[in-house]
Design a protein around this nucleic acid. Sequence first.
DNA 1: ACTTTGACTATAA
DNA 2: GTTATAGCCAAAG
Length: 112
Amino acid sequence: MTTQDSFFDKVYEVVKLIPRGRVTSFGAIAKFLGSARSARMVGWAMNNSHFLSEEIPAHRVVNRNGLLSGKAHFGAPSEMQRRLEAEGIQIEDSCVQQFGKLFWDPNKELAL
DNA sequence: ACTTTGACTATAA
DNA sequence: GTTATAGCCAAAG
């Protein structure tokens, strides 16, 4: 928490809190940050996360449909899927299987 | 200060 | 059921 707690920084904080083997959606993060309709900004923050020195588990953030919408932004298109599979998440056709089961909602998990 | 953008989401057809 | 369109808001050019 710095003096500048900008939207991006908040996003990074939440994303880093996503448990291994779980996934969440852009909208859920945006809502948790207070701007439910700023889902696009979350994605944009993720895009910038590659420039950070910290490792942001951006692969755990997918769109509302469980689609790996950001796979194209990784070093290799298959890297995102590979990382998720490494955590025990089944991926098929770039979609997270059992998305509803693996979904991690910060509003429920953090805002207890 | 204005315009463009973007890893989304909800709604309409 | 799918596909197309509009709204959305914060940062970058």
